[in-house]
């Protein structure tokens, strides 16, 4: 632990690494099924605000708050997923960016909107300032447990009939449909599962940061979540977990170069996708890069 702390990895950083690993897993699910969705930041916001309101306003324990956040994020995913998942690659990405922004703006204006509908003063989300003074009640072992359960469930899912259907939908939707896979059903269930995971990560992170505001869940956050999965690699469950941990730890380790952090972050993302397309957890890609760097062998 001392070695970690000396390079800037303190316990709060480890907690955020775990949160981001869960977020990486949530987008991994949709990517694994061939859906390029950027809605996870929006679902994270739904989870965070629901969770915090449940524990702070209703005085419920953290567990209920997290479950509530997961449930609401999953419920929101149903009406969004049904129409939107008919779209593909860039169109789906843009539509889900739009969804994320609408969620952000709705949370921003939730209080006046609700006040005008119910006729009473509602003060739940706190507008642009967000909710302040949230006690830090999420512990590292909560996060570890959540991540462990999520990873275990996804690993089991991969080996199941449904998991093979997910892979089939990614590889070719039409072929999958001809083989009897209910493509619409698979896509929507995966989208909902992904939203539930993002909602859980949001609810947990809301109890780590002491303050949550809608601006923390915008386009930047959506891109960041995508970066976890891309950097780590989407070939296996380990990829997004490693990606979330590395990408969270990197700015802290690079603190000595604090003013260059953004520049280095951008470069890492750019160079990774160009030169190591399979991500960090991808032995084949590394071997190929090694061969390329070593240059052509003399006898070849």
């Amino acid at each position: 632990m001392d070695i970690l702390r000396s390079i800037g990895i303190t316990e709060p950083v480890i907690q955020f690494m775990l949160v981001n690993a869960i977020l990486g897993l949530s987008i991994y699910l949709t990517l694994y099924t061939g859906m390029f969705s950027l809605a996870n930041a929006g679902f994270m916001a739904v989870g965070a605000f629901t969770g915090v309101i449940l524990t702070q306003e209703a005085g419920l324990p953290l567990g209920i708050g997290v479950l509530g956040g997961m449930a609401l994020a999953g419920l929101v995913a149903i009406p969004i997923g049904l129409p939107v998942l008919r779209l593909h690659d860039i169109y789906l990405a843009i539509a889900t960016i739009g969804f994320g922004e609408v969620v952000r703006i709705l949370i921003l204006n939730f209080d006046p909107l609700m006040s005008s509908i119910t006729g009473q003063t509602v003060a739940l989300t706190g507008g642009a300032l967000g909710i302040k003074g949230i006690p830090k009640i999420a512990e590292t072992w909560h996060l570890l447990l959540f991540l462990g359960i999520a990873a275990y469930c996804i690993a089991r899912l991969h080996r199941s009939r449904f998991g093979r259907a997910m892979a089939a939908v990614r590889q070719d939707e039409r072929v999958a449909a001809n083989m009897g896979v209910n493509v619409v059903y698979v896509k929507n269930v995966v989208f909902i599962l992904s939203a539930i995971l993002a909602g859980g990560a949001g609810a947990l992170s809301g109890h780590l940061t002491r303050i949550i505001s809608p601006d923390g869940y915008g386009f930047d956050q959506a891109v960041q979540i995508l970066a976890f999965a891309v950097l780590g690699g989407t070939g296996s469950i380990a990829g997004p977990i490693v990606g979330g941990i590395v990408l969270t730890g990197l700015p802290e380790v690079l603190r000595f170069a604090s003013q260059y952090r953004g520049v280095i972050n951008g470069l890492v993302l750019l160079l990774m996708i160009v030169y190591v397309p399979g991500g960090l957890v991808n032995p084949v890609g590394w071997a190929r890069l090694w061969r390329r760097l070593r240059g052509p062998t003399p006898d070849a």
Partner: peptide
């Protein structure tokens, strides 16, 4: 590479340019 990778590399380039 798939079109999505180009989208992601442009996001990386964007972060780089804004930070610079």
């Amino acid at each position: 590479a798939p079109r999505i990778s180009q989208l992601i590399s442009s996001i990386g380039a964007s972060i780089f340019l804004v930070s610079l």
